[in-house]
Design a protein around this nucleic acid. Structure first.
Lengths: 226, 226
DNA sequence: GCATGTGAATGGATTCACAGCT
DNA sequence: AGCTGTGAATCCATTCACATGC
């Protein structure tokens, strides 16, 4: 190995697991919080306490980005934050299209998290003629689904959000692929046969409720009083 | 072991992992679909193809419920469905309260999945005086947060949904615990220090978006054309 | 001394492969 | 023959523990 190597060793980003990237997102939040508190330096130990995580895990996760910690001291908050932003691809705004202007779609378009740091909803599409031409509270216009391709071209849309009923989800996904979208967030409770060209992430709210139901059934159904 | 044992061996439900229960929910959906198609029997092989899963995993998961498959044949759709419903505690309706009547809370209260099989939103609470006394489109009333305890008592509420901004989330969770709620779904992007008495499940929509951003950054940012 | 970065050890979850039942 | 149920093997993630560097 050449001496004096300064650039962090090439990190194979493709080898970072999704579990890890999820935690990187969480660390990023925490760092932003620390920055707002004017804290300059943080140790893996201190971070671990905040999240009930193991400090070794945090160090392993962060080591994926290269060596940015300072031994004996900890991590520089600002520098580490910048590396996380970089690694997660949040240096530029990613544009979204939401398919489905029903309750869920409308909620998402108005939801802060979908229009905050790094993300922006540029349009919605829906099949209901009554909705076409209207706008969300926040001003996002609703178009016919057939216009998806044009919208994607025009705004360089990168992420599609599927907020349509289950049976319609597959055809929406297919349309997104055809339009050139490379990543999608699927809220429909359906198993989409997915193409090579697109990365789909499922968010299934009912599974979460059912998981809580399972918990209640096994632990809390047997509560003593009541 | 006594011969002629007919009841399935006692299954320790506490040993079923969350990953497994999540898949049980998915299987349940699929079985409902199959039932609507009048299909009586299904093999783990066939189920596996639908979900891109391994058939051994499905068999292991289902074995958690006891031995219900028929060797050489497969699983009886109706019977298996009933066992899943049972195991997941979906035999009776679980009542929900949603804290936060903002965009997200309103979306959730109107969302089908939150008022479908087994779940029912009975009330919302919010701190904004302008919202108190109003109702959601679907008719769910909005109360002051201070009334949480009464609502929980009155409707035997079992699940709390936290749909308030990050900073308010912890105090809402505390109030839910105080009111006797045993399970919560948290949409706030905050790390809640959790009590023994309550099971909290986090749903972080931003993490999902950031995960897609990470994917785009590493695979799709380097697309050839465009 | 103190905290990182990391090989080694552990712990889970997934997959394989086959014995056993229908 | 066909498919389940499951020990054994494998794979992946987490945790431990310590050498390394500030």
């Amino acid at each position: 190995m050449p001496a004096g190597e300064r650039t962090p060793r090439a990190v194979n980003r493709e080898t970072i697991s999704e579990l890890t990237t999820g935690r990187l997102s969480i660390y990023l939040r925490c760092l932003e919080h620390l920055e707002s508190l004017q804290i300059r330096t943080i140790s893996s130990q201190a971070l671990a306490e905040q999240f009930h995580l193991n400090s070794a895990q945090i160090r392993k996760d962060l080591a994926c980005l290269g060596e940015f910690g300072i031994r004996g001291v900890g991590y520089d908050v600002a520098a580490l934050k910048q590396h996380l932003v970089d690694t997660l691809g949040l240096t530029r705004v990613r544009t979204l299209v939401i398919a489905g202007a029903g309750n869920l779609g409308m909620a998402l378009v108005n939801y802060q998290g979908f229009n905050a740091r790094g993300f922006q909803v540029v349009a919605m599409v829906d099949d209901d003629p009554a909705k076409i031409g209207k706008r969300s509270k926040s001003g996002v216009p609703i178009f016919e689904t057939s216009e998806l391709s044009r919208i994607v071209q025009e705004h360089q849309v990168e992420i599609g959000v599927i907020a349509v009923p289950g049976p319609a989800a597959q055809s929406v996904l297919d349309a997104m692929v055809a339009a050139g979208i490379r990543a999608a967030l699927n809220f429909a409770p359906a198993h989409l046969s997915t193409h090579q060209e697109i990365k789909v992430k499922d968010v299934d709210l009912r599974i979460n409720l059912e998981s809580l139901s399972f918990y209640l059934r096994n632990c809390a159904d047997t509560y003593p009083s009541r």
